[in-house]
């Protein structure tokens, strides 16, 4: 009887294990293999192993530029969602009134009910050269501004889309921090701001970490928003990969770029973990 339970648990895990193997490890494995081949072995008989895709990435500074743009957009998006999301998440975690909490939650979740494409088009209607904002500026006698087809537009669009992920992640973590800890700090003479900085902020580091990684990973792999808001003026890794597959039919090179994107996020995840763990003095986070 006692041995039947773990077996049952194992059985219950089987579907998700299969799903992961089929749709996660297998594609990534295939991508890794493809990045070292001269072509697609399914359609070409004389495929050989090569490192030329990686050499190409390393030799051409253009690809470094693309990588850096992608990471820069990811960092800006993460930093801004964190700064905008934290106060709201703190409020949501601490608000006493149930109806106000429900209202805030709805406000956070509501945008997610609309598709990314629709929301991005809404931004375009607002921010394009002849959009609402520029018409308004000109009407008031100001010069029109370049608000999209640049990194600013992309970051704005991404912040809008990924802010809920940051808020929900942070709310969960902050909500589990006992409010009495902050009160204890105040009782010992810390002003409310000082109490927050000394107690709540360091204890919410796991949430900051999780939310930032989630938003960063989503932002550097975003495709729709950078295309629509950037109008192909800004080249990011996902756009480049898509072009390599759909326009150049260079699957091997696209796979190599995909591996670079993966490695980039992994390196940043590990680095970020270490930095925040060191900052908060919580060694168990590493």
């Amino acid at each position: 009887m006692s041995r039947a339970v773990p077996n049952l648990m194992g059985l219950a895990l089987l579907p998700s294990a299969l799903f992961f193997a089929l749709f996660f490890f297998l594609p990534i494995g295939l991508m890794a293999v493809m990045s070292f081949l001269t072509g697609n072995p399914v359609v070409m008989p004389n495929v050989v192993a090569t490192t030329r895709h990686y050499e190409r990435i390393l030799e051409d500074p253009f690809y470094f530029e693309v990588m850096w743009t992608t990471v820069r957009i990811g960092l800006w998006t993460t930093a801004i969602t964190l700064l905008l999301g934290y106060p709201l998440a703190h409020l949501m975690a601490r608000v006493k009134s149930r109806s106000l909490h429900a209202l805030l939650l709805m406000a956070v979740l509501m945008p997610m009910l609309t598709g990314i494409v629709v929301r991005t088009f809404a931004w375009m209607a607002l921010l394009s050269d002849k959009g609402v904002v520029n018409q308004l500026l000109q009407g008031l006698g100001f010069a029109p501004m370049q608000l999209m087809y640049n990194e600013f537009g992309i970051v704005l669009g991404l912040v809008h889309i990924y802010l809920p992920f940051m808020i929900l992640t942070l709310t969960g973590v902050i909500g589990r921090i006992d409010e009495r800890l902050e009160q204890a700090a105040q009782n010992l003479g810390a002003s409310p701001i000082r109490a927050f900085v000394e107690v709540t902020l360091p204890l919410s580091v796991p949430g900051i970490l999780a939310g930032s990684l989630l938003v960063f990973a989503l932002a550097i792999s975003a495709y729709v928003t950078p295309i629509l808001m950037g109008g192909f003026q800004i080249m990011t890794l996902p756009i480049l990969i898509y072009q390599q597959i759909s326009a150049n039919f260079n699957i091997g090179f696209a796979a190599a770029l995909g591996m670079v994107l993966l490695a980039l996020s992994l390196v940043l995840v590990v680095a970020y973990n270490h930095i925040l763990a060191a900052l908060s003095g919580q060694r168990d986070l590493q």
């Binding site: 006992d178 009495r180 800890l181 009160q183 204890a184 700090a185 105040q186 009782n187 010992l188 003479g189 810390a190 002003s191 409310p192 000082r194 109490a195 000394e198 107690v199 360091p202 204890l203 908060s280 003095g281 919580q282």
Partner: peptide, 29 residues
């Protein structure tokens, strides 16, 4: 405000700062 009242308080669940050592907890005030 609470932080200007100069009172010590022992909370029901102690409310010790979990990320600080005993020394840091006591030194806080």
């Amino acid at each position: 405000p609470a932080h200007k009242r100069d009172m010590g308080m022992v909370f029901q669940n102690y409310a010790l700062f979990p990320h600080r050592t005993v020394r840091e907890n006591v030194a806080f005030g």
